[in-house]
């Protein structure tokens, strides 16, 4: 479904991604691990066109090279992005935040066509809070809203940047369960950045580890779980 081939990205003079190769198959959850500052978020931003990669690399989504397209065109191809810092619109109500996720031009092939009703089924709390301003929601509620807002655009592939960051353990567990549900019940493919944890390894089909802007490990979760040396050296576990 998604494949990155030799992707290189820069912030000004500093090269952040170095020949990154990565792929996500349909219906898969792929986890991307690494210490802070190794280029995980930049990888997702590069896929979305928010930090456009340079050089001869390719980002292929459903057999089409999307490298060089503006973010809105990439989103309209069927990729949904849930950023690290949530970025809800604090002065819009929950319902109007959801409105901003609707796309008028996207001809989606996603298995589920999301609307208010479906979103509220998945996030009953958002229905209760639909007239509240985004800024008045708790961290967990804001995270739900960010994911719900992205779902309103009917994505086929979801890019999640540390969705459980800064959340209380119980709420973080709910978010992880939600990711699993999105895959199992709604058929979404997911590329997720998370802090390394056995729980994440349980639900990810495959995982990658990054260091210094490069992919240094690619394999199934079980291989990474067994590789204690790699966990210690690159993930600080």
């Amino acid at each position: 479904m998604l494949s990155l081939e030799k992707v290189n990205s820069w912030y000004g003079e500093a090269q952040v991604l170095r020949n990154v190769d990565l792929n996500v198959k349909e219906g898969e959850i792929v986890a991307l691990f690494g210490r802070n500052g190794v280029g995980k978020t930049t990888t997702l931003r590069s896929i979305m066109g928010l930090t456009p990669p340079l050089g001869k690399g390719k980002i292929v989504f459903k057999d089409e090279n999307i490298l060089g397209l503006p973010p809105y065109k990439i989103a309209n191809k069927g990729i949904g992005f849930v950023p690290e810092d949530r970025r809800i619109f604090p002065y819009l109500t929950v319902k109007r935040n959801l409105d901003t996720g609707k796309k008028s031009t996207h001809k989606s092939n996603s298995k589920t066509k999301w609307d208010y009703q479906k979103v509220f089924q998945l996030f009953p709390k958002l229905e209760i809070l639909q007239d509240s301003l985004g800024k008045n929601l708790s961290g967990g509620e804001q995270q739900m809203l960010t994911i719900a807002r992205t779902l309103m655009g009917n994505p086929e592939l979801l890019l999640l940047d540390e969705p459980s960051e800064g959340l209380a353990p119980l709420i973080a567990r709910d978010v992880i369960n939600l990711v699993l549900e999105l895959k199992k019940e709604y058929g979404l493919s997911i590329l997720i950045i998370e802090q390394f944890s056995p729980r994440v390894l349980e639900y990810a089909d495959r995982c990658y580890v990054m260091d210094m802007g490069k992919i240094v490990f690619c394999g199934c979760s079980e291989d990474l779980r067994k590789d204690v040396k790699l966990q210690k050296e690159l993930l600080g576990v």
Binding site: M48, L50, L92, T100
Partner: peptide
């Protein structure tokens, strides 16, 4: 209106509006 929501959201964070699939230019 939905367009009004997008305009207001664009005043707050134009990058996010683009990432949500709206033609920012």
């Amino acid at each position: 209106t939905s367009f009004g929501a997008i305009v207001k959201a664009g005043m707050f964070n134009s990058e996010m509006i683009s990432a949500l699939g709206h033609n920012l230019p």
